[in-house]
Design a binder for these strands. Structure first.
Lengths: 230, 230
DNA sequence: GTCTATACATAGATAGAC
DNA sequence: GTCTATCTATGTATAGAC
């Protein structure tokens, strides 16, 4: 059914190929407008959810007339899929830190820090992703069951190797990844709750640094690891 | 601004007070219909989000005509607030386990298990709550900044006491609660992702028991604790 | 207290001039 | 490639018969 967001369906081609029919002088208008629309859509979807988002609101935030949005993305649904595709591209990268020959504590700390950076710098992305999964993940089912599953299988095998060698505590490695995701993304997705409980209006860069240290320490200890106190 | 979902505004009174004007014979019709509507609404809000949910869909699932839903809740927004109020009542209870004189490992394990039970038995509740927070928590801001903050302040003081006595590792206790929430609720909110990565169609009761053991062990270890291997 | 029929607003999407 | 005007569908909410 859901054939994955990445796959280019017939309807996608129009908005994906680079050689637009009668492109603008420097050819930048199309690119620029697409970026504006995608960024605006990302924010509106994060704030309102898919159902609550309106093309009018997206157009307004993008600074374009509504019909212009429909020119680039014929349906709201197409636009949503484009936003998700944009997001998924950057979702898997941070796991590159985790390789068999790396030091467990250092590699995992690197991964967790990368995730926390993403949480800090692109909270909106995390929220759209979270919202999609909470409401059933109909659009990204393909991504989850193929790309993501494959990557987790691969990386949890790496961790299983470490465990077999006695380099970290015996944990269920797949669930260990869930724990990492849960904790790191919590600070993006549930930031309203975090701020309310901490009594803070806004979390600063410095806050995030402190939180990251705490998160890294907690998760590593959960895996029977610790960083050298440099 | 948001005066909290629990507070009874003028508009709420109609749907909250027990003595309905011309109640049914056994007085059960109103109660029954309210239950049906709230349960249906909970599910539809969880699946579609607030914006995506329609009163027609809620009425359909409740097995009532649309106008009947509007009879009990004059607006969709009122109904949403009622669903949230219903949820918040049961949100704080499990923390009762955590008291100064209890054993840290046992008390925290009890709390985590209670949260995992809630995750298993009422995933829909967790999803509505999560969705609300992700999209800014406008409706429950009051609850978060008063009731929840107060409770967390109180309970984190308990943990700080344990830490001072050397009964658990020195962690930032507020963030420690965030870690617990993040991990436990992950299995309700992100179940689509969990199932996809594990390659399972459905998580059974037995799965949840196993996951709970893993979660308890992980979090306790993160706090420098462990359960006696009974 | 229930429910059919309907009013009214707004959404997504498109036609067609520029 | 852009954008005003507009069509159509759908959603929320209500009037009023039962």
């Amino acid at each position: 059914m859901a054939q994955g967001v990445g796959g280019a369906s017939k309807k996608d081609q129009k908005s994906v190929r680079a050689d637009a029919p009668a492109a603008a002088p420097e050819g930048g208008i199309r690119r620029e407008n697409l970026r504006r629309i995608l960024t605006a859509a990302e924010q509106v979807f994060a704030e309102q959810g898919y159902g609550g988002a309106t093309t009018a609101a997206i157009a307004l935030r993008a600074g374009l007339p509504k019909a212009n949005v429909h020119y680039y993305f014929s349906t709201k649904h197409d636009l949503y899929r484009a936003v998700l595709a944009d997001i998924l591209k950057q979702w898997l990268d941070p796991l590159a830190h985790v390789t068999p020959d790396s030091d467990p504590a250092q590699a995992l700390a690197g991964y967790i820090r990368a995730k926390m950076r993403a949480t800090r710098d692109r909270p909106v992305v995390s929220k759209v992703f979270a919202s999609e999964i909470i409401h059933g993940a109909a659009e990204i089912e393909g991504f989850l069951t193929s790309d993501l599953k494959k990557l987790v299988d691969e990386k949890s095998a790496v961790l299983d190797g470490w465990i077999a060698e006695g380099r970290m505590a015996p944990v269920d490695t797949r669930h260990f990844f869930f724990f990492i995701w849960a904790v790191t993304q919590h600070y993006a997705d549930f930031d309203a709750q975090v701020r309310a409980v901490l009594g803070r209006k806004k979390l600063t860069r410095r806050d995030f640094d402190a939180i990251t240290v705490e998160v890294v320490r907690f998760i590593l200890r959960g895996a029977g690891l610790s960083l050298p106190t440099a």
